[in-house]
Design a protein around this nucleic acid. Structure first.
Lengths: 192, 192
DNA sequence: AATTTTATTGAACAGTTGTACAATAAAATT
DNA sequence: AATTTTATTGTACAACTGTTCAATAAAATT
């Protein structure tokens, strides 16, 4: 039952800050271990004591964000505007699905990295799994149906598809716009 | 109008073979330039004359596979079994959409790499764009509609979602099974 | 407050990276 | 067949990697 060692806390905080700073100028795979340690003012040996590569630091970061994603799914409908709820287009749509865009916008800078080229696919899959497990959670009101796993992966990645498109247009559109795009898309598919 | 220099052809072939060999034992990001050159029996300087990093070699490889993907979209329906065509479930489904699973199965070993962790997201997006442009190509019988870009990205990534799930179950299911999963999924969505 | 535990440091090592350049060999061009 | 072009080689260099280890400093435990 030992608490966190203060030395470790201090070291990791320094590394986090250094990474955040460096990520503004260069992509993750281009950040060297020695570079990061220089920026964080820690010994290179210390880094290798805690991590194996720079990506591991980012992974820790990532887990914090995913935590927010999961919490945001559990919160009530506060992120949905009254305007949207009134909109008849939403009559069929589970508002839980829609909260994802709000989360992405909240961590916009972060998702710029996640969705950028040259980061390992690992992060994409972590994002994928986080969303997917929420889909399953929602539908678990019934029983978990093994045969539906393809449906979950289809829907999950479809939503990420919209987010990829959003990212490519530099997150210009609003969260509300994205919700509308989702509804329109689902309507179009229904008509196939 | 100069043809390919025979020296270059020979060198690149050696690098391709070396990479293919090394990829059986380790992941792409763990393959060192010097390692690849040792395996290919070429000078490290030669490598840097043609490429910047190991990933560039893989990217060249990738473009060949994508070429097949695009060609397979242009071929007639020969990859769809008679059984499927008879199946009433397919009455609504454009067979062009479905050919993607055949292509993935054909290059199964390759897509094991593409979809694995730790490869850069670049390859994912190249795959994404290749499929997406085929979607647009198909619907261009009408006019290209800018407002539909979210629909295209939604559908494209949804299909890849199925392929991710397929990959995770180690490509055990047959191409026909995947076609059926797609139809079932679309039917389920239609009922939302 | 004294003792134990352990995170951090600094130094050293062989191997890798990315770059540069002159020498050479091989291909293309005339 | 002679000449031009250029891909490949070998070498060198400073910086980075990944690992190991003893010394030290800092925190936790008694």
């Amino acid at each position: 039952m030992k608490a966190k060692d203060l030395r470790v806390v201090k070291t990791k905080k320094a590394i986090y800050q250094a990474l955040t700073h460096l990520l503004k100028d260069k992509l993750l795979p281009n950040i060297r271990v020695s570079e990061l340690c220089r920026e964080a003012n820690i010994n290179r040996g210390t880094f290798y004591f805690h991590y194996e590569e720079v990506g591991d630091v980012f992974k820790e970061f990532f887990e914090e964000v995913i935590l927010d994603l999961e919490e945001s799914y559990k919160e009530p409908y506060k992120y949905i505007s009254a305007q949207q709820i009134k909109s008849s287009a939403f009559k069929e749509l589970d508002p839980k699905t829609v909260r994802i865009f709000h989360h992405v916008k909240k961590y916009e800078d972060f998702y710029r990295i996640i969705l950028s080229d040259n980061v390992p696919t690992t992060y994409y899959y972590m994002f994928f799994d986080a969303i997917r497990s929420n889909f399953i959670e929602d539908s678990k009101i019934g029983k978990y149906n093994e045969s539906k796993k393809y449906l979950y992966s289809f829907l999950t990645n479809a939503i990420i598809g919209l987010i990829i498109e959003w990212h490519r247009s530099n997150f210009e559109e609003s969260v509300d716009d994205m919700n509308i795009h989702l509804v329109e898309t689902l309507n179009m598919i229904g008509k196939i």
